[in-house]
């Protein structure tokens, strides 16, 4: 008994250790750096300032951030629209078919997402697979400009992030008791009404989780907009990356990171409060 409990403590303890060592400490360093100034020779100087945060509010950076949020929002919406039907079919399919379909969702993860993004270039470029097929089918006369458009960025984001939408939706849909849907039918609801009144509200946690899991990375996935969108669309992720790697302005990049994290945290908090309040109202 004692052995197993100390083993358990070791397992749980090591998790905390990794969390602290690999997430908390670096983040505290980031937080500290965001209040410093850019150093001449060293990475940072020891002068404390809030100038970095003020700079984030300048019109250029602010509008870039808004664009970035809009882009990530649309990407999340597209993932939801594409992912829900798939997750629905997945959850409804036979017990034999489900592991296979899940495997199909997982397989792309076996390849590095950067490599997959380059593969998308092969698909989307002027003499790529898509244009070749469309030309061969006679649907278009000249190659479409797909690369370096917002469309290409959306394609890239949705392609990369779709599994993060499908998996929580699948879990939420699997958890919906089919007997509730039978009860709905029994009480006069058709399939569509059942879906709207029962399935969607009951899978709302999955919808929120999936949307968060897509929206948050979409804000930061700089390489997708770099590779597929060219220099045209600047995302928050690109901005942060540039601060660190191009301009070597570590405090500025840190401030942007911290702000983004805080914004995400605020979003999660709002959702949490809203759902709790909704729950309370229903109780009264």
């Amino acid at each position: 008994m004692k052995n197993s409990s100390s083993f358990r403590r070791l397992l749980i303890g090591s998790t905390y250790f990794w969390m602290a060592g690999l997430a908390l400490v670096p983040y505290l360093i980031l937080l500290g750096a965001s209040f410093l100034e850019r150093g001449e020779g060293a990475l940072v100087s020891s002068h404390v300032t809030s100038a970095n945060y003020l700079h984030l509010l300048s019109p250029t950076v602010f509008s870039m951030a808004l664009d970035s949020i809009g882009l990530a929002g649309i990407a999340a919406l597209l993932c939801l629209l594409a992912g829900y039907p798939f997750a629905y079919v997945l959850a409804q399919s036979s017990a034999k078919l489900q592991p296979l379909l899940l495997l199909l969702v997982m397989i792309p993860f076996w390849t590095n997402s950067l490599i997959r993004t380059y593969a998308l270039v092969m698909m989307l470029k002027a003499d790529g697979v898509v244009n070749t097929l469309l030309l061969a089918a006679g649907l278009i006369d000249a190659p479409l400009q797909l690369m370096y458009t917002p469309l290409a960025v959306f394609i890239g984001l949705v392609y990369t992030l779709l599994p993060f939408m499908i998996l929580p939706l699948y879990a939420a849909l699997k958890a919906v008791d089919p007997r509730l849907l039978e009860a709905g039918r029994d009480l006069g609801a058709g399939r569509v009404q059942n879906f709207i009144k029962i399935t969607v509200p009951l899978t709302m946690p999955g919808i929120i989780a999936g949307t968060m899991l897509v929206f948050l990375p979409a804000l930061g996935m700089f390489y997708i907009s770099d590779i597929l969108g060219g220099a045209r669309s600047m995302l928050l992720g690109n901005y942060i990356r540039d601060q660190f790697l191009v301009f070597r302005d570590i405090p500025m990049g840190s401030a942007a990171s911290v702000t983004m994290t805080l914004a995400m945290g605020l979003l999660l908090l709002l959702y949490h409060l809203a759902s709790r309040r909704l729950g309370k109202e229903m109780l009264q």
Binding site: R179, L180, L187, A189, L202
Partner: peptide, 28 residues
Amino acid sequence: PPEKRAVNTVFQNYALFPHMTVFDNVAF
């Protein structure tokens, strides 16, 4: 289909809608 039949069921596990109040369940 079930929704077109003048028949209602009390299910074994009750199958109450967990996201609705008692009123909304009964009013469904």
